[in-house]
């Protein structure tokens, strides 16, 4: 029987992504993982240009509509999905990249309070969950991401988080700052304040900071 066709049927009928193990259990015994994998890539190629795609998420495969049809598909429903606030996104990002982490650590990084309602919202969606408690005074909750986070954000595993390789840890940041500060001190030694104030007048008004933010951090990463 046609393996790709069988997998196609299973994926379409399933509400959840199906992983390799489960596919193997359901398909004929003589198939091994490489057969299934090649059938899956055959399917992935087949759906490349279509309105639906086979996507690998959360360790399994799932049919999803192609992102370019989002606007069209939204017409099916009256309710629009809620937009995520920046605080929710930043909190989620810190938890995702630093897990396990505590609320105090999140607040220290953001330099700003994390409201309980944001934690509750993220928990309700299953994006974050309590992994345990940190063995420090107060035994605060340690937060990490839950499976729905991978599924909803289309990630196969936490390794697939965007740019995680570029993320600098505290030591790297310290070194970076140390080196740069030293250069500045050697250059102008304590006149930095006046210099930059003087040079400020020549700066144009530049309010589109968004593009600037990204390039700056990339230049500075080691």
């Amino acid at each position: 029987m046609n393996t790709a066709g069988q997998i196609e049927a299973l994926l379409l009928a399933s509400d959840e992504p199906i992983n390799l193990q489960k596919l193997r259990d359901m398909l004929a015994d003589e198939l091994d993982s490489s057969d299934i994998r090649s059938a899956l890539s055959e399917l992935e190629a087949h759906y490349q240009e279509r309105g639906i795609q086979i996507v690998q998420v959360s360790g399994g495969w799932q049919f999803r509509t192609a992102p370019e049809h989002a606007e069209l598909v939204h017409q099916l429903w009256e309710i629009r999905p809620q937009r995520l606030s920046r605080s929710a996104l930043e909190t989620l990002a810190i938890i995702a990249y630093r897990q396990p982490t505590t609320r105090a650590e999140i607040e220290a990084l953001r330099g700003f309070k994390v409201s309980s309602s944001i934690i509750a919202t993220l928990q309700e969606r299953g994006w974050i969950k309590v992994l345990g408690r940190k063995e420090v005074p107060g035994r605060p909750h340690l937060f990490g991401t839950g499976k729905p986070f991978l599924k909803d954000f289309g990630l196969n595993s936490l390794q697939d988080l965007p740019d995680s390789a570029q993320l600098m840890d505290e030591d790297e940041i310290q070194n970076l700052v140390g080196n740069n500060v030293m250069q500045i001190q050697q250059g102008v030694l304590y006149e930095t304040e006046q210099n930059s104030e003087a040079s400020e007048n020549t700066d144009d008004e530049e309010n589109s900071q968004q593009g600037e933010v990204g390039s700056e951090a990339e230049e500075t990463s080691p």
Binding site: P67, L89, A96, F153, L155, L161, P162, A217
Partner: peptide, 19 residues
């Protein structure tokens, strides 16, 4: 710098195709 990293990552996350 530490905060700016996560601010960027939050944007990246937001841009990912979301269910």
């Amino acid at each position: 710098i530490a905060y700016e990293q996560y601010r960027m990552l939050a944007e990246d996350l937001n841009e990912r195709p979301r269910i």
